[in-house]
Nucleic acid binder design. Structure first.
Lengths: 132, 132
DNA sequence: TTGCTTGCAAATGATTTGCACTGCT
DNA sequence: AGCAGTGCAAATCATTTGCAAGCAA
């Protein structure tokens, strides 16, 4: 991992690969369930470290308890389908053309507001197939 | 308000007008600070009711503690500039043309995924003028 | 008078932290 | 040796809830 003194320990590897196994953001409970021997305090601590290291990202869900996923630089840029009924979150990729137009427009907008844009976050809210 | 048996009580009016006074999403702490005589349990309870009544919306912030704002049907559709340094959230309106294209594209996308789209949420992440 | 509201205090649940200990390097 | 990582239990913070009393329709 590197820069500072963080080590890429066994636990951290396991956490990352556990998250990687899912095709969508994972909650703490699920992770604990998979990594049975890992105490939750360690999970939390490691997730924080991994976040700072830019390896994982925390996704805000309306449901309590945050969800975690691999950082975009590992998975590619994507957005989320958020089911407002069951709280399920799934990844989607929007067409490049749209993404491009969006970026251009948002950059212009941000500039006008004196805001230095880093990236954007786009969620589609609605009902998943199950909850329709 | 109406449909069910919810009443538009004094406290609720005060909460709504307190939120309305801000030009941006407000945190619980700020609200309590303005509505000094209101116990926080009542604040929480009333915010929940107001949310269900479609009057206020809860905005997820990376910082702990949610932020609240008036529902879009009262303020108009808008998005957020989120400062990743100080956590400040400010409203922005994006050009109609873009909004329109976005909606069209997202609707198509959602349909393809078997997801029934209700609305979208778009945040611009970066640094506000102060934190640049 | 029936049912929604309120306050208060206590309960919850998610996340964080202190501390002593283990393990890399 | 010296710093980073770990477990556990206790602490913290935001939010929720039970209950008895107040108020509006």
């Amino acid at each position: 991992m590197g820069k500072c003194g963080q080590r890429y320990t066994q636990s951290r590897k396991e956490i990352v690969s556990a998250i990687a196994k899912y095709a969508q953001p994972v909650g703490i409970a699920d992770l604990l369930n998979v990594l049975k021997e890992l105490p939750q305090s360690s999970l939390y601590r490691n997730l924080t470290v991994l976040q700072e290291a830019g390896v994982v990202t925390r996704v805000m869900s309306s449901q309590d308890g945050g969800l975690y996923e691999l950082a975009e630089r590992l998975t590619g840029h994507h957005h989320h389908l958020v089911c407002s009924v069951c709280g399920d979150v799934r990844d989607v990729v929007v067409p490049d053309a749209l993404e491009h137009d969006l970026d251009a427009a948002l950059l212009r907008l941000a500039k006008r507001e004196g805001f230095s844009l880093d990236h954007h976050r786009l969620d589609l809210i609605g009902r998943c197939a199950k909850c329709s």
